[in-house]
């Protein structure tokens, strides 16, 4: 069978979801943000909730997420996405509301809003991209930066004694009664992408049942910040990030 015979509408198995806009994303080549965006958009498409979804973008690399999701979007102040999401969901309870934040936004400046939205059990989906670094501002140390990891503000490595410990905020949030589903995923292999998408789907489905916060951490790469090629950064992620941030469900409420 030749190529022309295969490329026919009836043979289509995968195409870019129309819940993403046509804009070319500004993310660096190989950045996991693009994959994470796509999975959220695919879940929205598959659930048929595009007209009933409001997303909240953070400050950080994904500040421009609102240009990529073809759903109504709000851009929050740094760290405050869970506060916006709280109000949106309470004022529009029949809508699906998701926040999308990086580790600096969610686990440093926005720690208060994150913990209290989770503790109140807001009926929202929180997507958390953890790449252990401040990407947008040029690779500074984040709350999630690993011990001994070099960044522009820990140029000799994160020295825990003076710089503090890397924060496992996801495990912390799993302790709160307001979270119903807390999971850690990754998106750098086909199998992990498929698994992550199922987790995101679950996190959105939970909103139908008013279960509380569904929290999906995605351990991701930052090849520019880590100063590696995209494929090398994915290997580094597997070798260094995953031992400290192990993948899998942390909390699944009945």
């Amino acid at each position: 069978m030749n190529r022309e015979d295969i490329i026919k509408p009836e043979n289509l198995v995968y195409r870019r979801t129309p819940v993403l806009t046509e804009n070319i994303m500004h993310y660096c080549p190989g950045c996991g943000h693009g994959t994470a965006h796509r999975l959220v958009a695919e879940v929205i498409e598959e659930m048929g909730i595009q007209e009933k979804t409001i997303g909240i973008a953070p400050v950080g690399c994904s500040v421009l997420a609102y240009n990529y999701f073809e759903v109504d979007m709000q851009e929050a102040a740094h760290g405050r996405a869970p506060a916006l999401a709280t109000a949106v969901k309470r004022l529009k309870p029949d809508f699906f509301v998701f926040s999308y934040q990086g580790d600096g936004d969610l686990a440093a400046i926005g720690t208060g809003e994150t913990i209290h939205a989770c503790n109140r059990g807001e009926n929202i989906t929180m997507i958390f991209i953890n790449n252990g670094i401040y990407g947008m501002t040029g690779g500074q140390m984040a709350p999630t930066t690993l011990e001994d990891m070099k960044t522009s503000t820990s140029p000799y490595g994160r020295e825990v004694q003076s710089m503090g410990n890397p924060l496992k905020i996801t495990e912390l949030l799993a302790q709160l009664p307001g979270t119903c589903y807390v999971t850690r995923q990754a998106v750098y292999t086909p199998a992990l992408v498929r698994k992550c998408k199922r987790a995101i789907r679950q996190a959105f489905e939970n909103q139908k049942e008013n279960k509380g916060v569904s929290f999906v951490e995605i351990v991701s790469n930052c090849n520019s910040g880590w100063k590696m090629t995209p494929t090398a950064s994915n290997q580094w992620l597997e070798d260094n990030m995953l031992p400290f941030y192990p993948l899998g469900d942390i909390k699944v409420s009945k």
Binding site: N11, L12, V13, Y14, M25, P29
Partner: peptide, 20 residues
């Protein structure tokens, strides 16, 4: 036509077809 390439692509570059 397994679509593995497409689903790890961060930029949605690849469209996949598979003959039935």
């Amino acid at each position: 036509g397994c679509a593995n390439c497409a689903i790890v692509c961060p930029d949605g570059v690849i469209t996949v077809y598979r003959a039935k």
